[in-house]
């Protein structure tokens, strides 16, 4: 009896100990997250202004703003999405609707995308430098940076879109078939519109990943901080600007803080928006079922 009691007490204390550890861990993580955000706000908020957002950087970024850098970032993003989206969504539609999960073709495509998702960003940078910049002769340009990023975001876009299409209830497909709709019509008029919010959420995640990228762009889109004249010009992305200011420019801390703040704010908005989209979609889907 005494032994059982002792055991019960030990379990009780162990239970409490674990609970304390869990709460401590959570508090630490929250505190660090707030610490980072407050640090960024304190360091960057004073430097932030409308002019900072639209002016071009001067004196290696110590003065001026990030206008041309934002333009380059957006151009790189557009190139990346323009190349990756059609490929990703056709691949996802094929994988989700046309080939069975056990077919050879499906397995090969899925496996290669899975491997692609595991490739580190610096390796994408090496590949982009060797293939787009040198082999295809695009040089250090927005085009080669964007295409490198396209390879990088492809797996995310495919997997989110595939998951979205698969989440559409089978009753839709059956109803469409019963109405005599062809598979193409079912896909275009029924499944894609229903899955649109998840496609959009995946798109936002891809954008987030592309905007945050630095290593893959270092040796593909280059360092030049002038306003890009065409897609073949070199353009510096925002994340790269932060890296350059903090590592290579003495006295560049204030604009680096402000740029980091802009980047983080952008990404937080994108991520929150994506979460909301998925949440609403799930709610609507449960009503529809």
């Amino acid at each position: 009896m005494l032994k059982i009691n002792a055991m019960r007490w030990r379990h009780f204390y162990l239970d409490r100990l674990v609970q304390v550890f869990v709460y401590l861990a959570v508090l630490t993580i929250c505190a660090v997250f707030l610490w980072i955000l407050i640090d960024l706000l304190r360091g960057g908020f004073a430097h932030l202004s409308w002019n900072f957002l639209i002016e071009s950087p001067r004196d290696a970024g110590r003065a001026g703003g990030i206008g041309s850098i934002l333009v380059s970032t957006i151009l790189i993003l557009l190139v990346a999405l323009g190349a990756a989206l059609p490929l990703a969504w056709t691949t996802a539609a094929l994988l989700a609707e046309y080939v069975s999960t056990t077919s050879k073709f499906g397995i090969v495509v899925r496996y290669s995308l899975q491997v692609l998702a595991g490739v580190p960003s610096i390796v994408f940078g090496l590949f982009g430098n060797a293939f787009f910049s040198i082999y295809l002769g695009l040089g250090f340009s927005i085009l080669s940076g964007g295409l490198t990023l396209a390879c990088m975001v492809l797996p995310i876009l495919v997997s989110t879109a595939e998951a979205g299409l698969r989440a559409v209830p089978d009753s839709y497909r059956l109803s469409a078939a019963a109405l005599g709709m062809t598979r193409a019509a079912t896909l275009i008029h029924l499944l894609l519109p229903i899955a649109a919010p998840t496609l959009a959420a995946g798109l936002l995640l891809g954008i987030g990943r592309a905007v945050a990228e630095t290593a893959a762009l270092l040796f593909t889109s280059g360092y030049v901080d002038r306003m890009p004249g065409s897609l073949l010009d070199s353009g510096r992305a925002l994340a790269l600007h932060i890296f350059d200011l903090s590592m290579n420019v003495p006295g560049g801390d204030a604009p680096a803080y402000a740029s980091a703040l802009v980047l983080v704010a952008m990404l937080l908005c994108i991520n929150i928006f994506a979460m909301k989209l998925v949440q609403n979609w799930q709610r609507r889907r449960t009503i529809l079922e």
Partner: peptide, 28 residues
């Protein structure tokens, strides 16, 4: 025709996506 055409387009897209990995390994 549209049905098989669409499937053809989708297949081409998927093949290109799958080739990206091959291309990267090859160039490295």
């Amino acid at each position: 025709l549209t049905d098989s055409l669409l499937q053809g387009i989708l297949r081409v897209g998927a093949v290109i996506s799958a080739l990206a990995m091959l291309l990267i390994s090859l160039f490295l």
